[in-house]
Each structure stands twice: as C-alpha cells, then as structure tokens.
C-alpha cells in the first residue's frame, strides 16, 4: 500500500514534532490507515510524557549551599576579572576531584548499590568460590555457540537458553562477546573473550523472578565493564561474521 518505509525513528520524530512537512503529512496519512502505526506513534508520545514526569520529579530545586557557594565564588571572580578588563582567567577553586577523592570506583560503587537496591542483585557477597556458578557459563557447548552464533540469536542448551547479545573487537585484537544465559532459576549476563580459546571475563547473575520478564538490571555494570575494556561499537552483520570466522579459525 504505502511506499513509505516507516522506521521507528521516523515515527518517533513524527511524535516529537521533528519531521519536515512533506514527510510528516505522509506519516499522518499512513497513521490514519494503519492502526498499528498509530499505536506506535502514541507509544512514542507516551514514553516522552513518562520520561518527562520522571525527570520533573527528579528536579531538586535546593542546590546544596556548599555547591552554590563554590559556584557563586567562581562567578564573582570571573566578573571581577571581566570588569578589570583582564581576560578572565580560570578561577582556581580547588579542583574538585583529586582532593575530594571521588574516584570512579565510587561512581561504580554507587551504581552497583543502585543495582543491588533495585533488583536484589547481591553485590556485597564476594564471588562465591563455588566454581559451580561459573561452570555452566564455561560449558563447551556455550563456547561452541559463541564461536558461531550471530548476535541477537538464541540457542537452547542443556545448561539453559543462550542468547548472544553483541560482539566487540578490542584494541589488542581479541574478540569479546556479551551474552546471556538463562536457566530456570537464574539469568547471567556475561562477557567472554577469545584469544586462543574463550574465557569468561565477566559475569553478573541474578535470580529469575518470573518466567516472562527479567529486567536486565546489571546494565550499568555491564556497560561500565565494556567501557573499561574499550569495547567501542559492536560489530554487526558481515563484520561480525568475518571476525568470528577469523577468531575461531
């Protein structure tokens, strides 16, 4: 019917009022004919409203006095310098980080805490020396699938359902894959990297709360981990297929 291929991006842009007129009119026509398209647009409007409300509720109008004072001091110094006709120099208040010492690990700890709070993911307990938990990740069948399964695909294995999520090439040349292994009781998000063979380098496990819906709450940590690896942009399509063949040759 319609020649127009309506991607999610186009429908979203329509919902956000970001489409140029001829395209917008075309989308409106398709919407009128196709309820599923209309529903998508409504969903995009809805997600915007929801997000907006969340952000509105997160706006704390009270800026801590200390922060306000520090910034007022910066502004005063800046204005004094401007008035004196000098080129304003950077105001050297204490550089916030080195002295106060909020290294990145605190941010990570904070996001870890958030994950723990939000989902019951248990962070406080150190890695169980129980090799059993990792053993199912390192099952040869899992590794076999990691060597060939395209991202987004799934495989049913005796140890659970394996879903390969993404593939990355690191700067040192090794190939890493993010995957999820889901059994009846747990879901584990993990990363395995390959030089000569696959090694599981990262794993986050959480109990499966209900069969149908598992929030991937470990995302922050997984992102942090992939970021630290320097994972960059995931390989897709042919690039991924080629990398897999090369790595497992």
């Amino acid at each position: 019917m319609s020649e127009l291929h309506l991607t999610d991006e186009i429908l979203m842009a329509f919902a956000d009022g970001e489409l140029e007129e001829p395209v917008a009119a075309a989308v409106a026509r398709v919407m009128a004919q196709d309820p599923s398209v209309a529903r998508k647009v409504v969903e995009f409007q809805q997600s915007r409203r929801l997000t907006r409300s969340v952000f509105a509720s997160n706006l704390a109008p009270d800026v801590p006095a200390k922060l306000r004072a520090a910034i007022s001091a910066q502004i005063e110094a800046y204005e004094a310098a401007s008035k004196a006709g000098r080129r304003p120099e950077p105001v050297k208040t204490e550089s916030p980080w080195p002295k106060r010492g909020y290294p990145m690990k605190m941010a990570l700890a904070a996001s870890l805490a958030a994950v723990a709070v939000a989902t019951g993911y248990f962070a406080g307990r150190q890695a169980q020396p129980e090799a059993g938990r990792l053993a199912h990740l390192e099952d040869p069948l899992v590794f076999t699938e990691l060597s060939r399964l395209e991202s987004g695909r799934e495989a049913e294995l005796p140890v659970g359902r394996l879903r390969v999520i993404s593939t990355y090439r690191l700067q040192n040349g090794s190939l890493c894959r993010e995957f999820r292994l889901q059994s009846t009781s747990t879901a584990t998000d993990a990363v395995a990297c390959r030089n000569d063979e696959w090694n599981v380098t990262f794993a986050l496990t959480e109990p499966t709360k209900s069969a149908e819906y598992v929030p991937s709450s470990g995302d922050g940590l997984m992102d942090a981990y992939l970021g630290r690896l320097g994972a960059g942009t995931p390989l897709e399509g042919e690039a991924e297929a080629k990398a897999l063949v090369e790595a497992t040759r």
Partner: peptide, 21 residues
Amino acid sequence: MMEDVEAQTHLIGDPGEEPVM
C-alpha cells in the same frame, strides 16, 4: 579503575537472595 572492575569480574549473585525490590 581497572582493578575495581576486575575485582568484580567473577562476582556472582546469590540466587537464593530474595529480591528486596
């Protein structure tokens, strides 16, 4: 930073822990 991530590399949740959500 690397050490911190590595310290958690094999961090595994306890499936017996009830969600506190």
